[in-house]
Amino acid sequence: MRHCLALLALLLSLPLSAAQLHLELGDTSRQWSSAELLAHPQARDISIEQDVSYKRPMQYRAVPLAVLLQGVGVNDHLQAVALDGFAAEMPAAPLLQQGPARAWLAVEDPAKPWPALGNGKPSAGPFYLVWTAPQASGIRPEQWPFQIASIRRLASVEQRFPALLPDPKLPADNPVRQGFALFQQNCLACHRLNGAGDAQFGPDLNLPHNPTEYFQPAFLRKLIRDPQSLRTWPQAKMPGFTEAVLSEQELDALLAYLGHMAGRKP
């Protein structure tokens, strides 16, 4: 018995096993272990002034994401899939730029794990997409996916999921079209609509019913701005979208898209 306890204590004292990042970039695929990325020749220590997930300044060992995206072009489309099913849709161009905002893949060292994101929650690791100078390029919170398991090059959202498209007869300057772009940026990472999308995180926003059909307008805006102020439970995960993230005009456009899609169910 004493021998078993000593062995258990030894195992608990060992560093956590290295994680694997899967890159599927069209014609090429690659796996990187956390150890390989921590030792990458371009890895460096970076400071994030206001981390989106931790809500405070953070320090990371990170690799410029662009150096890992060999063969990816500025017109390509990428998707970062997290361990919990969160699927962030990302145009490649901002990820490849050298500045002013720059994308980094922060890598959690198994020997020095990051803090938990909250009580009973894991850390943001093993891999976390963070940005230096994000405000310089209008980077949104949904462009900071954490607990990343894989990054894939895919066709655009419009090509993959035609069920998300608004009526093609709408004028180019119709707010619904802007709302569709905002839906992709802010909602599609967690939600599907008309059964279309890759996320496994939140409910479908049109089937069986669209939220514009069962929420009074003022309460739907309140839900988007501060979900916990409208309804709360311990497992709630939806973030709030402040005016700094989604302006009133942008929220109007997003709601216009949702209301429009209530009439475009399959």
Rank of each mutant, 00 (worst) to 15 (best):
V107G: 10
G138I: 00
K169P: 00
A253E: 08
L5I: 02
A253D: 11
A155E: 13
Y54K: 01
G125A: 03
E36N: 02
L8R: 06
V130D: 02
L170M: 02
L16H: 10
G259Y: 00
Q20R: 14
L193K: 01
L164S: 13
L165I: 02
G179W: 08
W144H: 09
F215S: 01
R231E: 14
N186V: 05
H22N: 11
P110N: 10
A62Q: 04
A103S: 04
P203F: 00
V81E: 12
Q135R: 12
L255T: 09
A244K: 14
F215Q: 01
P168D: 10
V74Y: 00
F201I: 08
P208W: 08
K121A: 12
L95A: 02
P171N: 06
A80F: 05
Q135E: 15
S34N: 11
S156K: 10
F127I: 07
Q216W: 00
Q184G: 04
R2T: 14
P234H: 09
V63N: 07
S33Y: 05
F161T: 09
G125Q: 08
A163P: 04
H191M: 08
S247M: 07
D76W: 01
A116C: 01
P217M: 06
L182I: 15
S156D: 12
A172E: 15
A80K: 02
P168C: 11
L205C: 10
D226M: 03
P113R: 12
R160G: 08
L7R: 12
A18M: 06
T232C: 00
W233N: 09
E158A: 15
N194L: 12
G125R: 05
R225S: 10
L254R: 01
W32T: 11
L182W: 08
E24R: 13
Q235K: 13
R44G: 07
G197H: 04
R153H: 03
K55Y: 03
G179T: 10
S47D: 13
Q178H: 14
Y257P: 11
D226K: 12
P126C: 02
V63Q: 03
G71P: 00
V52Q: 12
F219Y: 15
L154Q: 11
M1S: 15
L83W: 06
L68T: 08
A218D: 15
L117R: 13
P171K: 11
K222Y: 04
W104I: 05
P227D: 13
A103V: 01
L129Q: 03
Y214W: 15
V176E: 03
I148Q: 03
L165E: 10
A218G: 01
D167M: 09
I224L: 15
F180T: 04
S47T: 14
P122A: 07
L96A: 06
D84F: 02
P203Y: 00
G263S: 12
A189R: 15
K112W: 02
A124H: 01
A163Y: 01
L165G: 02
Q228L: 07
Q42A: 10
M90D: 03
I139A: 02
Q59I: 00
Q159M: 08
A181R: 15
A181L: 13
M238G: 11
A124D: 04
N186C: 04
L129W: 01
P15C: 11
A82E: 06
P266F: 05
K169I: 06
K222M: 12
F161H: 15
Q185T: 13
L223S: 12
L12T: 05
